[in-house]
Amino acid sequence: MTDLVIVLFGLTLLYISAISRLEGYIRALAVQGFLLTLLVVVAGGRINIWNLAFIVLETLGFKTFVIPWFLTKVVRENEISRETEPYITNFYSLLFTSLIFAFSFFIAYWAVRNVTDVRPLHFGISIATIVFGLFIILTRKKLITHTMGFMIIENGIFLLSLAKVHEMPMIVNTGILLDLFLAVFLLGIFINKIKSSFEELDVNELTYLKD
């Protein structure tokens, strides 16, 4: 069951690299949030009940609903055109994503040879998600897509931390949650501001400061 969910999670990455509409990205992020919730619930027996409730709130509440809703709102308010405008075509995107997967599984099997208690599928997909997030940021032009790339990295880190038996203390978990959502909201606010002073909402506009 866990493995199936993780494979589905991996598929969302392929889906993101193959499509070229922003709504698709947002939908994929919501699906990722939901899959993470499933994983937490399946593995839930080991975690204490308050921590579990908190993490379900985080994944189901924030990652599945609030963040996608917020991103949709930012897209709509700023009249961002729906194309993602990548620097490379979808074909190369898919190709690179496959390479990222291959690389990550290579790392995962290398890790398994060194230490015993790592599940290669889980570890591999987490690493792939993190690298994929960076890849999205590097190859897409729009600032909003960069924010989504950031969320993908965060989801990857969350998946990685689920591989661990024990949880962080509550105070730290709360802090992490607070930080991440403030970061996303702040980015959203600044996208609004950038919209009012720059012509386009993409990185090519941000070239005023340089040496």
Binding site: I130, I137, L160, S161, A183, L187, F190, I194, S197, L206
Partner: peptide, 26 residues
């Protein structure tokens, strides 16, 4: 305009960077 650009880069690059530090912690 320039402060907007600087702020965006600041939040974004530092947040990504610090996420990588979190990968290290995990």
């Amino acid at each position: 305009k320039s402060s907007l650009e600087a702020t965006w880069k600041y939040i974004f690059i530092c947040s990504i960077g610090i996420s990588l530090a979190f990968v290290g912690i995990v």
